[in-house]
Simulated scan of single mutants.
Amino acid sequence: MKRMLNTLLLTGSCLFATGIEAKLNVFACEPEWGALAKELAGDKAEIDVATTALQNIHQIEPKPSLIAKLRRADLLLCTGAELESGWLPQLTRQSGNANVVSGNGNFMAASFITTLDKPAQIDRAAGDVHPQGNPHFHLDPYRMSIIAEALAARLEVLDAANAAVYRKNLADFNTRWSSAIKTWEAKAKPLAGRKIIVHHKSWAYLNKWLGLVQVATLEPMPGVPPTSSYLVSVVSAAEKEKPMAIILAGYQDPKAANWLSKRTGLPIVILPFSVGGDPMSKDLFSMYDSTINKLLAAAK
Rank of each mutant, 00 (worst) to 15 (best):
G211V: 09
H130M: 03
D123P: 10
A153G: 15
G277E: 08
K38Y: 02
H130Q: 04
Q132V: 04
A299C: 12
Q132K: 12
S274Q: 14
E219T: 05
V235P: 12
I147Y: 07
Y288F: 15
D283E: 13
N56G: 01
V165I: 07
A298Q: 12
G80R: 02
T11G: 04
T114E: 07
N99R: 15
A186E: 07
I268T: 08
K2W: 06
L155G: 12
A238L: 11
A148I: 11
V275D: 12
A120E: 14
S111Y: 00
A35N: 02
S228R: 02
G12V: 01
N134C: 03
A148W: 10
L284V: 08
T52D: 03
R143F: 11
K23Q: 08
D140H: 07
F16S: 02
Y288G: 10
G265F: 15
I122G: 00
Y230P: 04
A148G: 14
N6K: 12
D172S: 14
A152I: 14
L218W: 10
A161I: 01
I146L: 13
L10P: 04
A238G: 11
G103V: 06
G105H: 13
G127Q: 00
I196K: 12
W87T: 09
P272T: 04
Y251N: 09
S286H: 13
H138R: 07
R72Y: 10
M244S: 08
T114M: 02
I246L: 15
A148P: 11
D117T: 01
G34W: 09
M287Q: 11
A35T: 04
I20H: 13
P220L: 00
